Computed example of a mutant assay.
Amino acid sequence: MNPSYFSTVGMVLAPTLLADFGIQVTGWSISSFLQTEKFYDLAGSTSFILCTFLSLYKPWDANSIWAADDKTVTVLRAVHPRQLIASGTTVAWAAYLGSFLFSRALKHGDKRFDNVKRFPGRFLIYWLVQGIWVALTALPVYMTNSIPRSVHPDLGLQDYIGFALWVSGFAFEVVANYQKQKWRKEVGRDYKRSFISTGLWSLSRHPNYFGECLLWFGSYLFCSSAFSAALASPAPIMLHWMSRLAVFSPIFVTFLITRVSGIPLLERENDRRLKDVVAYWKYKKATSMFVPTFSRRSTE
């Protein structure tokens, strides 16, 4: 690529996103042949981890990243603390969620794919959508990793607030998932006639999803503090449309979860499964669907 025609960020995003969709196509090929959905979420988390690594270390650019001298590998370009934290949090989240969903898929499968995994063309659409999800969700991370260390401003208040939001969201997601797993084990076969309404689930009907959306808002806030400096640089580091696109990351995640594939599917499933359970409808009426609130639940 000729640097005079591409911004620094654009030159990093291109191979990073190419790797993302390469993983999806490879995962689809194997899963379609085996007619299984069990590797779907694992491929998603792998894409997040690999794309984060590529955007940070850029292994294709040997002159600016790595050099081998005898048997010693030396990092020639140091990275900014903002990049390390943004990357580390993304990898931690992807490793956690990927292992959690993969383990669940091995035990229970995934009903979303029951009617499509035997049809390669339709199955491919799900994998390509996952590629878009990986690309847009962590786009601010890939972009901040693409900005040279020398351009990054020092960590400031915006970074600390963003990191605090990420930690809060991640804790919410992990604790909510743990509480639900524990509840599932306790109720056993009564699961189909029961629902969880304790712990974080007493504050929200979907606290795990709230946590995930919150952490990505925090990640965007943390990463975006470097965008203004990149746009102000005389070198072609970042284009204006890229910084505007990055803000869609947390918006996209929230829209996907609250309007498309997360909460709507679970709400419909719970309404069908628990249609005759009076306590469930009381819980649903008294408890916030998404944002945690202290409800005034009827004790009658």
Rank of each mutant, 00 (worst) to 15 (best):
L17K: 02
G109W: 06
P59Y: 02
H108K: 15
A68W: 09
S47W: 04
S228W: 08
V116G: 02
C213F: 02
R118F: 08
L97A: 09
I257E: 12
T90E: 06
T287D: 09
I132V: 15
L155C: 07
L18S: 14
Q35Y: 00
Y191L: 12
K282M: 06
K192R: 14
S45Y: 07
V12Y: 00
P264E: 10
R104E: 03
R122Q: 13
S197P: 00
V129D: 00
M143R: 01
Q83A: 10
K285D: 14
A67R: 15
I30N: 01
A229M: 02
K182E: 11
A86R: 03
M1D: 05
L245D: 05
I263F: 04
E267F: 04
A95T: 10
L128V: 07
R82P: 00
D190N: 15
D110L: 06
F33M: 10
W66I: 08
V260S: 13
G88F: 04
E186A: 14
F172I: 08
L54S: 06
V73Y: 12
A135M: 07
T258Y: 08
C51S: 14
T299S: 13
P120H: 10
S29W: 12
V175Q: 11
M11H: 01
G27T: 03
R193V: 08
Q158E: 11
V187R: 08
Y142H: 13
S99Q: 12
D41C: 09
T254N: 11
S228K: 14
K111N: 11
V73M: 12
D114K: 15
A95F: 13
T8N: 06
L256E: 12
E186Y: 02
G162F: 00
F252C: 10
V75H: 06
S4K: 15
D114L: 07
T36Y: 04
L274D: 08
F217R: 15
L13E: 05
F195K: 12
F21P: 00
M289N: 05
V247S: 08
S47P: 03
V141W: 01
P207E: 12
A14F: 14
H240M: 09
G169F: 09
A95Y: 11
F53K: 03
T90N: 14
T26C: 10
L124P: 01
Y160T: 13
V260W: 11
Y40S: 08
H240C: 01
V187S: 04
Y280A: 06
E267M: 07
M1Y: 12
L128T: 11
R77H: 09
V75W: 03
A226H: 02
S99K: 14
M143T: 13
V174S: 05
Y209S: 06
A135Y: 02
R268W: 01
H206W: 05
I23A: 05
N63W: 02
L84S: 10
S224Y: 02
F48L: 12
I49G: 04
S168W: 07
W60Q: 12
R184A: 04
E212Q: 15
S219T: 15
W281D: 10
A229D: 10
L221R: 14
A232Y: 02
T89P: 00
L128I: 14
A279P: 00
F290A: 03
M242C: 07
F217E: 01
G109Y: 05
S298W: 09
A176P: 04
R149Y: 07
P250I: 07
